[in-house]
């Protein structure tokens, strides 16, 4: 991106496809915020790759003008890493749901975090599997009643923020689809962050787990005096149960994976192909 890039309207990121989400789905708010952030950052569609998993949120790339990749269930992060390392100039945004990210794809998060490659990973968290008719997800509360838990969920939910802070993510934030302006600001900061940026976005499922009445009274901004550079403070905030805090819990700067392999990337981008004869000499 050049500093003097022309203004881009949020509308320009819209595609001809109309979201198939249920009216009132939280994902509409996330999508609108994403358009705002992309426009604010003046990211050109051609330089943007939106990688998504499976589920309602997985349909997002179809609605954002970009090189999208709607991958198989749970594999947003490995595909994002491949894209980013193959062409570090691209802006890579990973999107998916809580089932896609924390259940079937949960094994990838720790490792994606360790690599600290430059990606913004947005999890649209509704605590349920909407597309498969409302089963309990890893973030569903105890007692959650659904088709696969007719007697109530007996597993405790994971705490995505504490988990990501524990893994060592360099940017950890929470947003809410019902506060699109604040959400857009957070997404902008996540995309701007150099390294692995994680966002847990509360995005209610109006059909299977409607929390629109339950969530707002619990919401609070991350306290003004919160020290987001302290991992300990961030962890404490993530564990607090008095409120559902919105904002940046933790942010730090660490070398990215791309920086670690700069020598290889430079060699790969060299105009001359590798000297096969020199490499071949090892067989002599």
């Amino acid at each position: 991106m050049s500093a003097q890039a022309a203004e881009i309207s949020p509308q320009e990121y819209k595609t001809d496809e109309h979201p198939i989400w249920c009216p009132g789905c939280g994902d509409f708010g996330v999508l609108a915020s994403l358009y705002q952030s992309l426009a604010a950052l003046k990211i050109h569609s051609k330089d943007l790759v939106v990688v998504s998993g499976i589920g309602c949120s997985g349909r997002t790339p179809g609605f954002v003008k970009s090189y999208g990749f709607h991958v198989v269930h749970g594999r947003v992060l490995p595909v994002s890493l491949g894209v980013k390392l193959a062409n570090p100039k691209l802006t890579v945004i990973g999107v998916g749901g809580d089932g896609d990210g924390f259940a079937i794809g949960g094994g990838h998060i720790a490792h994606a975090v360790r690599r600290n490659f430059d990606v913004a990973y947005l999890v649209m968290d509704n605590a349920t599997y909407g597309l498969t008719k409302g089963q309990y997800s890893p973030t569903a509360p105890k007692g959650f009643m659904a088709g696969s838990t007719p007697y109530g969920n007996i597993e405790k939910p994971i705490n995505p923020l504490a988990m990501l802070i524990g893994y060592g993510a360099t940017f950890v934030a929470r947003g809410y689809s019902g506060k699109p302006r604040e959400l857009a600001d957070l997404i902008t900061r996540a995309i701007e962050h150099k390294g692995f940026a994680f966002m847990d976005i509360i995005s209610p499922c109006i059909t299977f787990y409607n929390t629109y009445k339950v969530i707002p009274p619990q919401l609070a901004e991350v306290p003004k005096d919160h020290d987001a550079t302290s991992r300990t403070r961030a962890f404490e905030l993530a564990l607090r149960e008095d409120k559902v805090y919105l904002g940046v819990f933790y942010q730090t700067q660490e070398p990215t994976f791309e920086e670690g392999v700069a020598q290889v990337i430079k060699a790969a981008q060299a105009s001359a192909p590798p000297r096969l004869d020199e490499i071949f000499a090892e067989f002599a």
């Binding site: 992060l77 894209v83 720790a110 290889v264």
Partner: peptide, 25 residues
Amino acid sequence: KTGTLVKQAEDEIAVLNMAIGASHA
């Protein structure tokens, strides 16, 4: 020497998905 980015991954699921992501790009 070859300019090949080599990534040891967390499992083979990630391995092929990374390769597919790189190829997409």
